[in-house]
Design a protein around this nucleic acid. Structure first.
Length: 486
RNA sequence: GCCCCCAUCGUCUAGUGGCCCAGGACACCAGCCUUUCAAGCUGAAGAUCAGGGGUUCGAAUCCCCUUGGGGGCACCA
């Protein structure tokens, strides 16, 4: 049984890089009928951010990445919060100390900083100098009694060649002499990441560790802990990073980096999933659009690339528009309503008496013009505004003057009043006739109507728009426009 | 400074020794459509496969070096 995990630390928002890693884990688990576990790495008590975990889980939830074990989903390997698993780490460190594979260190932060500086200036590799390992027994006893702050360090064996067969990167090797005796248990009795992730991955029977490439340099440390404990290490796969447009690690200064910001901006989860999957993975040389099921079916680690990718927002935009266009009208309308409910400041102010039917008609007119859910407000506001609230600017078209415009509005008003059924076909026929009679270009005449009826230079096709608005409102708006002329 | 990773159009990528003087997608440009904006369609442009050495009958594909980029070197994860 394949078991993979996503191990977020609740110290910040759900970064898209992390969320993509979560997604690859999820895909891998689903592809192979395995389990996807969320484990909360809350061992840094100083950096905990309240609400961070909730937003991380919310992001997973938004994207439909359901976990099989983890917060709110009890499983046989719990608890899934590292802060609740301290006894495990303690018993392991006790064992390692007893076996001389780890030792207490009493060095002050000041001494360590100073040591590091010296090494830098001497152009040596930086790392702990084993000062406390080399303490004599009486010295140790003395320090142990006197010092209130002590940590436990892993004793890195000398002269070992450490080899990793990475699932994505291939063979990578390190020389253990370049690795130092790193801390595994902090002075507050919490483990460091290095220890905790090894202990938990083992105890939770994780089979594949798929994590970001930034972890690659610390993997030899983890491998050595597995070895010291005589445990089989899981398989590792290091995912390429996501970079900002300047090719540095994606960060806040590049704009949105939280998955939930994308939700707020009006991206669809299915577009987000599809787009992120293509950042570092491909099925073949031509497939771009995937349903979640296709993705699960087609996903494989050996098609994950090694090189980092730049987050290409233009392509995401295109893809989001594509998904919006391919949706059922009802579905899109429901999505918009949900979106407006969640982000009221981006919502239309829709009067209570608007019928569902009217809403559907409006949405149908903007569906293929929408790239983001958030754009609906700007595109359709005039459908819901009171007639008197329209702002009429530039009513008089190029090559026309107030007089001609006035006349055109007059003629149009008369015809519209007399028209039979107020539908697209009749409107088109009638208005194009008037257009011809008036000897105006379509651009002039229809442009004028557009401004008078919508207050905008850009709108859905004007005949459709008029049908949806209905005769009464069209006539009122044209009358208002006419009155503004004089 | 030390360690590790990476390197194909602006961007995401296909490519695992001959099918490639390199294919697809986004963006860009042009044309068509047209009532504005989109959408759609058609087409164009865009990569001497980072550079240099090898190996081979043959290299984007294998090896080495250089350069460039990235990541890591905490009692953070």
């Amino acid at each position: 049984m394949i078991r993979v995990r996503f191990a977020p630390s609740p110290t910040g928002f759900p970064h898209v890089g992390n969320i993509r890693t979560a997604m690859f884990n999820w895909l891998f688990a689903r592809r192979h009928g395995g389990k996807f576990i969320v484990r909360v790495e809350d061992t840094d008590q100083n950096r905990l951010v309240s609400g961070a975990l909730d937003s991380i889980l919310e992001a997973l939830d938004w994207l439909g990445l359901q976990w099989d074990e983890g917060p709110n989903v009890e499983g046989p390997y719990g608890p899934y919060f590292q802060s609740q698993r301290l006894r495990h780490y303690e018993s392991i460190t006790d064992q390692l100390v007893k076996e001389d594979q780890a030792y207490y260190c009493y060095c002050t932060p000041e001494r360590l900083t100073c040591m590091r500086k010296r090494q830098q200036s001497l152009k040596q590799p930086t790392g702990y100098d084993r000062h406390c390992l080399n303490l004599s027994s009486p010295e140790k006893d003395k320090m142990h009694g006197a010092s209130k702050t002590r940590v436990i360090r892993f004793r890195m064996p000398n002269d070992r060649s450490i080899i990793l067969e990475d699932l994505i990167g291939g063979k990578v090797s390190w020389d253990s002499n370049l690795l130092d005796d790193f801390v595994i248990l902090k002075s507050d009795r919490y483990p460091t990441y290095h220890l905790a992730n090894v202990v938990d991955d083992h105890l939770m029977e994780i089979t594949h560790v798929l994590r970001a490439e930034e972890w690659l340099p610390s993997t030899p440390k983890h491998l050595m802990i597995y070895q010291a404990l005589n445990w089989n290490a899981p398989l590792f796969g290091h995912m390429p990073m996501i970079l900002g447009p300047d090719k540095s690690k994606l960060s806040k200064r590049h704009g949105a980096t939280s998955a939930l910001e994308y939700k707020e901006m009006g991206y669809l989860p299915e577009a987000m999933i599809n787009f992120m999957a293509l950042l570092g993975w491909s099925l073949d040389d031509h497939t771009e659009i995937f349903s979640q099921q296709d993705l699960v079916k087609g996903f494989s680690l050996d098609r994950v690339v090694k090189s980092a990718a730049i987050f290409n927002k233009e392509k995401l935009d295109w893809m989001n528009g594509l998904y919006i266009r391919s949706m059922d009208l009802d579905d899109l309308t429901v999505r918009l309503e949900d979106y407006w409910k969640e982000f009221p400041d981006q919502a239309l102010s829709i009067p209570n008496n608007v019928s569902r039917d009217y809403l559907l008609k409006v949405v149908s007119l903007i569906q293929e013009r929408l790239k983001l859910l958030s754009e609906a407000q700007e595109l359709t506001g005039f459908f819901f505004l009171d007639d008197t609230d329209l702002e009429i600017m530039e009513l008089i078209q190029k090559g026309m003057d107030a007089e001609v415009t006035f006349l055109a509005l007059n003629v149009t008003l008369n015809e519209l009043r007399a028209m039979d059924s107020f539908n697209v076909q009749n409107l088109e026929k009638c208005l194009l006739d008037i257009n011809t009679q008036l000897k105006l270009s379509r651009k002039q005449f229809l442009g004028m109507l557009r401004i008078a009826l919508t207050g905008k230079k850009i709108s859905p096709p004007i005949f459709e728009t008029m049908e949806v608005l209905g005769r009464d409102r069209c006539i009122r708006r044209l009358e208002l426009a006419r009155s503004w002329l004089s």
